[in-house]
Structures are given as structure tokens and as C-alpha cells.
Design a protein around this nucleic acid. Sequence first.
DNA 1: CCGACGTCCTGCTAGC
DNA 2: TGCTAGCAGGACGTCG
Length: 272
Amino acid sequence: MPELPEVETVVRDLRPLLTGRRLTVIHVGKAKLRRPWKAAWGKKLTGSTISSIRRRGKWIILDLDPAAHLIVHLGMTGQFTVNTVNVPTPDHTHLVFTLDDGNELRFRDVRRFGSVEWFAHADDVNHFLGERLGPEPFDMPAKQFHESLMSSKRTLKALLLDQTVVAGVGNIYADEALFRAGLHPECRGNAMTAKDCDRLRLAIVVVLTKAIESRGSTIRDYIGGSGLRGGFQDEFTVYGRTGEPCVKCNTPIERIRVAGRSSHYCPQCQQR
DNA sequence: CCGACGTCCTGCTAGC
DNA sequence: TGCTAGCAGGACGTCG
């Protein structure tokens, strides 16, 4: 589900609700997450204060005091929200923390592709994220992106979904950025010119920025940190618009399978 | 080494 | 109305 704009929205929503709050784990579900929560972690963080909350790629990082860190990934259907206790806890809620203002921080994930992990040291967090993630799209050097694409025979779609190439892009925003740049998802990285690469890099930045301004996209499960839905789904140009007219040329949008994922594009505006 | 593909999980829906 | 195959915003292990 959540890509960079959705995760950024969750972090912005949660920041005022979590910063400075003391937390304690009060419920651990029995279902196993992709990266299992270890029972010992609950005791370690009991009574800790959340000093900051931030995002890196699609990961959420809670910095704790005394020094420790919680790393959260929402997978496809994850929700990370603060609720008042009178709101009933829905099914598939795997972790609940109480906050010292009486509210609850809840991690819910129907498909359980998400995870919450505890780390003792900042170095371990940096190592963990560093080996999985490339640059943030907003400060990615043009040269580095160019180099990543040019040196690969893979399709543009596969490259954009690879978190080590650029962090935070997923299936929706890959399709939207490729449309904006006028590039076909099956183009090969090594067929790109420097100009193509930079057009694509800028398209990613613009699409993600607009999506954040709309609080992300809600197709089905996604909600922000305070339970609000996103609004960018109303501005999709290609994603989920199979058969509908292209916003630029009216040609019907097509859907094909690329890199194992459905890809939406305009056959007129995006040629190989 | 690189790239393509299957797998993890539940729930919804399009199509019969 | 009822059933089922197929698909879903992600990441990672395995295979050729």
C-alpha cells in the first residue's frame, strides 16, 4: 500500500501526537509479522520517551530516549495510528502501545507484510537502512540516477521499484512518473540518455511532491496517522485508469505486466 | 553478478 | 445468489 507520500503523511500526522510522549507496550498479537516482534523488546522500551519521528524511504523511524529506535514498515496494508481508547481496536491489530496522555498508538496490518522492529543503536539502524535504500528522491544527484539507469539492462519499471536505485517509489508513483516523463515502462535503463534520466528524475520529484500535498493516495486500506484518507487517487493520470482516455491525448490507457507488477501507461504518449 | 520470478498473507471483486 | 480465480500500494529469497 503505502509509498513515500503515504509514509510521509503518517509521519507528519504522528509527529505532534508522539513527540515527547512516554510509551509502553500493552498488547502483542499472536500472528507473526514479516519481521517478527520479539517479546523482549517490550520490556526494553517500557517507559521510554519518543524524542523524534522521521521517514527514510518507506520506513518510519521512532527515536527513543533512553537511546533506542523503533523501525516501522507498513508493507501493503499497514496502518500506524494514534487513537483514543474509546475507539474499538479493529481486527489485525498486532501491536498496541499506551501513551502517557492516555491515547494508544496502534499498528494494524491485514496482510502482515509490514513490521515493527527495535534497535538499540543508531549505527545498527543506519546499517539496516543503508544497505536497503538508495538516495531520497528529493536530494538525489542527477548524475547518480543517470548512472544507476545507464548501467542496467533492466526495465525502467523494475529500476524505479528497486529501493536501492531511489528510495520510496512504488507501483503507483512509478507509473505516474513514467507517464509524466513520457517514457514507456518497458524501456531499458541502458537505452536512456542523460536528458531522459533527468526528465524522469524531475517527474518523480513533482509527482511525489503533489501526492504529499494531497496526503497520499487511498485505494483501499491506506489511512494517515490520525485516520484520514488520502486524496491523490483523484489526480491519477494512468494508475488504475485502464481503458479510460489519456489526459493529454485521449488514447485509452493500457495495462501490461512489467517486472511482475501491473503497469499503466498511454501507448501514444509513452513509446519505447 | 544480474535479472526474472515465486512467495509470504488476507480480503475483495469481477466474472461465470 | 453463490462460488472462485485473480488481483492488490512491498520486499526478499531462489533460481537460471
